[in-house]
């Protein structure tokens, strides 16, 4: 086991894409964690005096505000840096929900087979009968109207509930292959309970694909959250979500282009990071000879 892990680690270190991805992701993580230290201004406090011009226009990047200000005179740099936490938290929570659902359903469907499998996969088909984004928009818009729960929670719940299907399919596929293997057979002979087989024997062997999909899922969820925020269906104001920053700043593309460039590039870099990392992990766990 040790050598396999060592080999995997070596493969990872040799994969340029994975390294770049890991670097970018850790940068964003550092930004999120160190946010209070990195910015002098409160991301939620408007500054009507030095943050806006006479007429109320956002201020250009200057010494006090390195990336300028937004429409309310808040520091863009500060909001950018605090926005990292929002993206990561929402992405992570959404992925957590999706993984939980997906893995459970995949495990059960793959192992049980027969009617249960068919039924569950039909359920997957039904959720997939709808474009992910449209379903997310519909659900987010409707959840927004109701009084239940915190605004940000509604967002990642929406994304999680809509996005578990790929995970379920992949896990089920893997379980189908593993099911017939010797070690599962022997576990059954010994009389292990289904739950034990599922969680102690099958689950550890599916961790590879789960990790890959979870990482790629982070990228997808962060992207989806930014789209929802752009449509004003994301975390409620004044949360400094990057997508929301784009929504608020988009009309200023001529007078204050930094309002669009900064959050746009931030989203881009974060998503690239997770995508590269995810693909790197995929190469690590399931290497195809490319070299």
């Amino acid at each position: 086991m040790a050598t396999a892990q060592f080999r995997a680690w070596r493969r990872f270190c040799r994969n340029r894409g994975a390294l770049v991805g890991a670097f970018l992701v850790s940068m964003v993580l550092a930004m999120a964690v160190l946010a209070p230290l990195l910015s002098a201004h409160d991301p939620l406090s408007p500054d009507f005096d030095s943050g806006l011009t006479e007429l109320g226009a956002p201020v250009e990047p200057n010494f006090e505000y390195p990336l300028g200000t937004d429409r309310l005179g808040r520091s863009v740099w500060s909001r950018l840096v605090h926005g990292a936490e929002v993206s990561l938290v929402v992405g992570f929570s959404a992925v957590l929900i999706a993984v939980t659902f997906g893995v459970l359903i995949g495990l059960v469907a793959g192992y049980a087979g027969g009617m249960v499998d068919t039924l569950l996969m039909r359920l997957v088909d039904m959720v997939l009968a709808f474009p992910f984004l449209l379903l997310a928009i519909l659900l987010a818009a409707l959840l927004r109207e109701s009084a239940v729960g915190d605004g940000t929670a509604k967002v990642f719940i929406t994304l999680g509930v809509v996005g578990w299907t790929t995970m379920a399919r992949v896990v089920r596929g893997k379980v189908l292959t593993l099911r017939e293997m010797d070690f599962i057979e022997s576990a059954r002979c010994v009389g292990a309970s289904t739950a034990r087989i599922l969680f102690r024997h099958l689950l550890p062997n599916v961790l590879g694909p789960i990790a890959v999909l979870a990482t790629l899922g982070m990228a997808q969820m962060i992207l989806a959250e930014s789209v929802l925020s752009y449509l004003s269906l994301g975390p409620p104001p004044p949360t400094p979500s990057w997508g929301r920053m784009l929504y608020e700043g988009q009309t200023y593309y001529r007078t204050a282009p930094w309002l669009i460039a900064a959050p746009g590039v931030a989203i881009l870099i974060t998503v690239i990071g997770f995508n590269l990392l995810g693909e790197g992990l995929r190469d690590v766990f399931d290497p195809k000879d490319h070299h």
């Binding site: 894409g17 990228a219 789209v227 784009l246 746009g264 989203i267 881009l268 690239i272 995508n275």
Partner: peptide
Amino acid sequence: AIGQSAPTFFVGL
């Protein structure tokens, strides 16, 4: 890689 990670609205704008 960049294209795959760019939000549609950003590209559009």
